[in-house]
C-alpha cells in the first residue's frame, strides 16, 4: 500500500521523502488548499524544487487544490491547477466540480484525485466523479466503516485512499460551516478551520480557557492535556450535561486495522498533518513506513510511540469502527 504523507513546508517535504513516503501531498501558499495556515505551504519555486527532490528519489508529489473556487476569484484556482500541472505534479487533489471540469478539459492527461473535501461517500457518488471528470482515485471521507469501504471498493473502478493517522474531522468533510458560523472564515472558501486569527487562550484561575471568536470552546483544568479550539472538539453544555458534544480532542489512528484496510481494497494510506512540524512528519512517516511492512504483532510497539504526538495525546479509530457512531 502507498503511504501518502503531508508537507506544509519544503523542510517537512524533504523529511517526508527521506523518511519513506511513496507520495507527498502539499499545497500552494493561498486559499486554494484546505490548510491555508499562516507561514505554511509552497511558493511556485518551492514546489518546483520539491518535485525535483522527490522525483530523484522516485517519490510522487500530489498537489492539493481542494477548496471551492470563490465566485469571482476563479482565476486563483485556475492558476493553481495550471501551475501545478506545469511544474509536474503527479496528481491534483480536487474537490470543486467546476475546478474538476476545468482540469479535465484543459489538462486531460493530468491525473485527478478526488479530495476528501468532495464528500464522495458511496459508490454512486464515486461513479459520478469518475465518469464526469475521469477521476483516478478517491480519498474517502472519514465517515465510513471498514466494511462500508470494502463494499464500496467492489462497486467502483478507481483507486481508494483513506486517512489512517492524524487530525480527525468529526463532520463529513467539505460539508461543514461550523467554522464560518463562528469566525466568518470558511473551510470550503478560505481553506481554514477554526483559524488561528480567531483563537485565544487565556488563563482563568488554574484553568486554561480556549476561545474561538466570541465563543468559549474549552476549559482545561490544571494538568489536563489541552487541545486546539477546533469547534467539533470543544466542550459544551447540553441540558444539564457538560462534555465533548461531538468528539474528544483526539486524533485518528487506524493503524491497528492496516490489514483489514488492505483486504478491503484500500490502495493508499494517508497521513493528515500538513500543519504539523517537520519533526512530527519525520517521526510519523518513518514509524508508519515500518508499521506497514511489519507483522500485525510487531505493530503495537511501533505505534505506541506515535500516540505521544497526538492531539490531546489520545487517539480513536473514528468512524472506521461502527461503535464510534
Amino acid at each position: 500500500m502507498e503511504l501518502i504523507c503531508p508537507a506544509g513546508t519544503p523542510a517537512a517535504f524533504r523529511e517526508a521523502v527521506d523518511a519513506g513516503a511513496d507520495a507527498v501531498y502539499c499545497g500552494f501558499r493561498d486559499e486554494t488548499n484546505a490548510r491555508n495556515f499562516p507561514g505554511l505551504n509552497f511558493s511556485r519555486d518551492e514546489l518546483k524544487t520539491a518535485i525535483a527532490y522527490a522525483r530523484q528519489r522516485k517519490v510522487m508529489t500530489f498537489v492539493a487544490i481542494n477548496t471551492f473556487m470563490r465566485a469571482g476569484q476563479e482565476k486563483l484556482w485556475h492558476d493553481a491547477v495550471d501551475d501545478a500541472v506545469r511544474l509536474g505534479a503527479d496528481a491534483l487533489i480536487l474537490a470543486d466540480f467546476g475546478l474538476m471540469a476545468y482540469t479535465a478539459e484543459r489538462h486531460p492527461e493530468q491525473r485527478l484525485h478526488v479530495s476528501v473535501q468532495a464528500s464522495a461517500s458511496n459508490a454512486d457518488a464515486v461513479k459520478f466523479l469518475v465518469e464526469t471528470f475521469g477521476a483516478k482515485r478517491v480519498v474517502l471521507p472519514r465517515i465510513l466503516t471498514i466494511p462500508d469501504i470494502a463494499r464500496l471498493a467492489r462497486q467502483i473502478s478507481c483507486e481508494i485512499e483513506v486517512f489512517v493517522f492524524g487530525g480527525l474531522c468529526v463532520m463529513a468533510e467539505g460539508r461543514c460551516s461550523l467554522s464560518s458560523y463562528a469566525t466568518g472564515k470558511s473551510p470550503n472558501m478560505h481553506g481554514v478551520c477554526s483559524p488561528a486569527s480567531h483563537v485565544r487562550y487565556r488563563e482563568d484561575g488554574s484553568e486554561l480557557v480556549s476561545e474561538l471568536g466570541d465563543y468559549t470552546i474549552n476549559r482545561f483544568p490544571a494538568g489536563e492535556a489541552a487541545g486546539y479550539p477546533t469547534l467539533c472538539k470543544g466542550r459544551f453544555d447540553i441540558a444539564e450535561e457538560r462534555g465533548y458534544a461531538f468528539e474528544d480532542p483526539v486524533s485518528l489512528d487506524v493503524m491497528d486495522h492496516i490489514d483489514a484496510l488492505r483486504d478491503a481494497g484500500v490502495g493508499a494510506l494517508k497521513i493528515e498533518g500538513r500543519q504539523r512540524g517537520k519533526a512530527y512528519v519525520a517521526e510519523v512517516v518513518s514509524i508508519m513506513r515500518r508499521a506497514v511492512a511489519a507483522n500485525a504483532d510487531e505493530r503495537p510497539a511501533l505505534l505506541s510511540r506515535l500516540r505521544r504526538l497526538s492531539e490531546g495525546q489520545k487517539t480513536t479509530s473514528g468512524a472506521y469502527e461502527k461503535r464510534w457512531r
Binding site: G8, T9, P10, A11, A12, F37, P38, G39, L40, P195, A196, S197, V199, R200, Y201, R202, E203, L208, F220, G223, E224, A225, A226, G227, Y228, P249, Q275, R276, G277, K278, A279, Y280, E283, R308, L309, S310, E311, G312, Q313
Partner: peptide, 30 residues
Amino acid sequence: IDGDAVFFSRSLTITGDMEAMLALRNALDD
C-alpha cells in the same frame, strides 16, 4: 520537536496573537 505536541502537553503557553505565533513557528520549522 513538534510545537503542537508540546503545546497540547501544556509544557508551553502561548498568549496573544496566535496567528502570528503560528506563522513564526512554521517559518522557523522550515
